[in-house]
Amino acid sequence: MAYAWCFLLFMTGLYCAVVKKNMVKIVLGIIIMEYAVNIFLIMLGYRIGGVAPIVGKGELAGIDKVTSAFVNNCVDPLPQALVLTSIVISLGSLALMIALCIRTYERYGTFDITEIRRLRG
């Protein structure tokens, strides 16, 4: 159910990127796809009733050990680490795509990709 929801969100973004003819709309579709993939990766590591992967005072056993309750309840930290880098990278790629859009608008005076295709022949 939740995975299928992620897939539906991904398909919405893909529809937007494929069908629309406004350049900024295509960028928005790519952003929606990024959100869907990030949420799906986090969902793969979730367990019901889990705790966040951050050790507090209550989870310490001894000096450097964590309690077994923490180990048995912790959600997966690996997808979180991967998604954390992915989010910052998506901001950089968003800036790059927007720079392309602005430059194209200045060159052709429109965001419409079919118009641009017609102008260039």
């Binding site: 986090i42 979730y46 966040a52």
Partner: peptide
């Protein structure tokens, strides 16, 4: 936040 990922 609901998926227990406060960093993200």
């Amino acid at each position: 936040l609901f998926l227990k990922a406060p960093d993200i």
